[in-house]
Design a protein around this nucleic acid. Structure first.
Length: 467
RNA sequence: GCUCCCUUCGUCUAGUGGUUAGGACGCUGGCCUCUCACGCCGGUAACACCGGUUCGAAUCCGGUAGGGAGCGCCA
């Protein structure tokens, strides 16, 4: 059997963590089994579907690198096919018109709930004569007895009695098909072999299986992946920190870090934490996915991002960080040694935004000095030390880390100061902050002329403010 | 309320009848050190509960409790 999976978001919002993980699992499964990955936009809810959401979802998937082999298909473009399927079910006696009003149904549900029952349609319109003046909905005639068994790849066999199910609506009164009908028809037509989706759908699955059977279609295999919970233990939703994946890009996350974090939520391979995309494809098994829900942990995601930044090549860093540098007013390649600058800062940055900030002073002289640091490092003999350093550095011909290192040490030694008492004033002078890569490397990367310029500027500042 | 699903450190997890219950994030003590980091060494903390089965249960069975999901002319 050829493998085909699908990711079917409804365009009523952006792509968030949960959807991204479902898409990833499908993607991994299709890659591993050399199958097709179909993207389908389920936009039959015309009230809430928007073009912006479609675009946001597409953008999110592109950023994550989750490419699809087919689609995007739009359900609104397949209306004829759904109507045909509905007619087929009507013709075979597996569906019927229902003339109940919403008020009538609300009343029925309220009554059932009052009696401690599960609210569900009681099939009162089965075999009912047409009511004039009412546009009927179409309901699927669910079997009244027996049970449906879902052979779930993740959860195992799940038994649901048909008596728990009711006759669901498959076409609205305006003729528009509903979700449970459209998924089934699409999965059937698109040759979907494996349905991998959130386990909030398990309760729909028996209904879909019954419809599939009425349509005489083969059943796909199912795999229901557990939910991702917010830190309050509730299902992730827009109210519970489920932000758009695009926001992670803006916050300075590497797409692969997000993917790696996501794949470890509900799945593991021994004690391993880091997986390249190829390793994920090779090692991921849908049947090894956990049955229980997992709580989203932003701290671990941040750590994961840090791991990816630390081990990234400068080319990768440039690619992903360019926009963040621009946001900080910097064009990365405006300095010829941009690669070394990135390398010097990458193991100090947990996000790409932070990386851009840390690199900034190499491109743009600090506007002002960190106030607390000024008090700490510009007092005492700092002025003398800085002046001495300026003189020592001035005469260096080969502007590299080693001679700079020696010069700074020589000043410290001759003045009987600890290295920090010399390095920190310099650091503050060139960076504006008391934090930077090692001082010799920092100065080497900054360049001789610029280093001396900033040191002299600091000396002037100290003469004016530190008296 | 009803149906379905789930339950190992705070969190992500390893573990499939015999382990000092392992790793990771976080938090934390120390080393290193010119700052911030990296790195290294150490610490903290878990089998929800109660019954079985068994010579022996985190592992198998049952119940209880807790949590999640669903119950739409949404998807």
């Amino acid at each position: 059997m050829t493998v085909a999976v699908r990711f079917p978001p409804s365009p009523t919002g952006y792509l968030h963590i949960g959807g991204a993980r479902t898409a990833l699992f499908n993607w991994l499964f299709s890659k591993k089994n050399t199958g097709r990955f179909v993207l389908r936009i389920e936009d039959t809810d015309r009230e809430r579907s928007t073009e912006e959401s479609v675009q946001a979802i597409l953008d999110g998937m592109r950023w994550l690198g989750l490419d699809y082999d087919e689609g995007p298909y739009f359900q609104t473009q397949r209306m004829d096919r759904y109507k045909q399927a509905i007619n087929q079910l009507m013709a075979s006696g597996d569906a019927y018109h229902c003339y109940c009003s919403k008020e009538e149904l609300d009343q029925l549900r309220a009554e059932q709930r009052r009696q401690g029952l599960k609210p569900r349609y009681d099939g009162r319109c089965r075999g009912r004569d047409p009511v004039s003046g009412v546009q009927p909905v179409v309901r699927f005639k669910n079997p009244l007895s027996g049970e449906v068994i879902i052979a779930d790849l993740i959860k195992g066999n799940i038994h649901i009695s048909n008596t728990e199910l009711d006759d669901l609506i498959i076409a609205r009164s305006d003729g528009m098909p509903t979700y449970n009908l459209t998924v089934v028809v699409d999965d059937m037509d698109m040759g979907i072999s494996h349905v991998i989706r959130g386990d909030d759908h398990v309760n729909n699955t028996p209904r879909q299986i019954n419809i599939l059977r009425a349509l005489r279609a083969p059943l796909p295999q199912y795999a229901h992946v557990p939910m991702i919970l917010g830190q309050d233990g509730k299902r992730m939703s827009k109210r519970h920190g489920a932000v758009s994946v695009i926001q992670y890009r803006e916050l300075g996350y590497m797409p692969q870090a997000l993917l790696n974090y996501l794949v470890r939520l509900g799945w593991s391979h021994g004690d391993r934490e880091i997986f390249s995309m190829d390793e994920m494809i090779e090692l991921f098994e849908i049947s090894e996915v956990h049955k229980s829900a997992a709580v989203y942990d932003p701290d671990k995601l941040l750590w994961m991002n840090y791991e990816y930044i630390k081990s990234a090549s400068v080319e990768q860093l440039k690619l992903h960080a360019a926009q963040h540098f621009l946001n900080a007013g910097i064009e990365i390649e405006s300095r010829q040694n941009w690669g070394e600058i990135l390398r010097a800062n990458q193991e100090r940055s947990k996000t790409l935004v932070e990386l851009a900030q840390r690199c900034r002073f190499f491109y743009i002289a600090p506007g002002e000095y960190n106030e607390k640091a000024v008090k700490k490092h510009f007092g005492g003999r700092a002025l003398q030390a800085l002046t001495a350093c300026g003189n020592q550095l001035q005469v260096i011909d080969q502007w590299r880390a080693e001679p700079i290192h020696e010069a700074v040490h020589a000043v410290a030694e001759s003045m009987e100061l600890k290295l920090g008492e010399v390095a920190q004033p310099i650091r503050l002078a060139v960076a504006g902050e008391p934090v930077s890569p090692p001082i010799d490397l920092t100065l080497a990367l900054l360049g001789k002329a610029e280093t001396l310029r900033r040191i002299h500027r600091a000396i002037t500042f100290m003469q004016q403010h530190m008296s």
